[in-house]
Write a protein that binds this DNA or RNA. Structure first.
Lengths: 210, 210
DNA sequence: TCTGCTTAGTGATATAATTAACTTACTTTA
DNA sequence: TAAAGTAAGTTAATTATATCACTAAGCAGA
């Protein structure tokens, strides 16, 4: 199976499909068509089929997809057949909120270490995990074989933390600090900038008025 | 000037450029080239020029762009020449984190009301804004002429809140609850799903290994 | 078992977005 | 004031993505 380049939009949709399938499965529904999925998540049936076609044939013509089966396949594709060890750096308001975000644990993302440089926070236990000083980051992340780092520190120190995470061998970084981070190409980087999201909205609101 | 359809990716980049220009301006730099911007934010110079070309001519050939001038233009394009009244619904960990997120206020997003249904929280003051019960949402949002709603409640009640926001006349909604929301087409909707972001990363990490 | 219906998979087409190449305009220097 | 250099603006080419239309496969009822 030649792994063609998969559009990122496809991956995002797969993630959405999988969440929807969780819901459908919980209702006890056995079989679902591309049209049903499409309606449930707000895309076209062709899009659903095309997205799945990148990875194989999971359905039965004239019938549809077996819900559990399809769900399992999508989780596998997304890399969620396994758990992931995640470290979170920066325990300001956002970082704290992320520690208790249910969605992570449910999908197999386990926060195995927490770091901050505030002496008040170091040593406290959050959700069963002790907050450690940044100096220990490399040692702990390497020891835990942590694969994913989440950056929730101010922009001014984000690059420094990114460097430490890279040095510790993480494979992917989710960055909440605004601004551009430089990481080597073998490390996957994704930025979530909350203000950018609002700005896309205000642009669209403005554009509507023209 | 016919307003062609602008790629959303362009809007996101404009938002990033504008943040970078703030930084550049603060350093006292007067003029900047598309190449400089490109390097600063990690895209190609052609991309920068193309993005700007959708909206007009802001530079001088052979010279570059005046930093302040370009910055002003981009903010105008993004709809950030004005302040925006924002309401935030749901004061769990994420909602609380958002109330103190500096990036919003800096970019002209002013949180003017807060809502939750937890009696413990109602009546408390957060950053100078009183937390009110959900029942008051419509009344307050209409009175404040609030244009943007942020949803930070559990998925199970997100649609209900979205309906209330729409009924109160907001023009845009930023939704942090996983799942699909239905809103009329004249209301701009954007979803930020934190777990989806991690899943794009894990897919890419997995794909690299093939 | 045949007929009609449903629905996945797929190849072709259309649309969109990015990259590259080219043209025009301004600045500086000799 | 002419020439060389630089950089924006723009058109063309390429690449990527999404849509459409068709084909093949399985199912249900007569």
């Amino acid at each position: 199976m030649k792994t063609l380049k998969i559009p990122e939009a496809t991956i995002i949709r797969l993630s959405v499909y999988s969440r929807y399938l969780t819901e459908v499965d919980r209702k006890g529904i056995i079989t679902i068509s591309s049209g049903d999925v499409a309606e449930g998540v707000g895309v076209s049936p062709a899009q659903v089929r095309k997205d799945l076609a990148y990875f194989g044939e999971f359905g039965t013509r004239g019938v549809g997809y077996n819900v559990k089966d399809l769900h399992r396949h999508i989780l596998k594709i997304l890399g969620l057949a396994q758990d992931w060890s995640v470290t979170l750096v920066g325990l300001g308001n956002l970082g704290l909120a992320l520690t208790s975000y249910k969605g992570f644990r449910e999908r197999g993302f386990v926060i195995t270490s927490l770091f901050d440089n505030d002496p008040e926070k170091i040593g406290t236990i959050i959700n069963g995990v002790e907050v450690m000083p940044i100096e220990k980051l490399e040692e702990v992340v390497v020891a835990n074989k942590t694969q994913i780092g989440i950056i929730a520190v101010p922009s001014s120190v984000a690059q420094e933390i990114a460097d430490k995470l890279v040095a510790s061998g993480v494979q992917a970084i989710l960055n909440f600090a605004p601004g551009v981070l430089n990481v080597p190409p073998e490390v996957e980087l994704r930025n979530v900038d909350l203000a950018v999201n609002l700005e896309v909205l205000t642009f669209n609101v403005g554009a509507q008025r023209l």
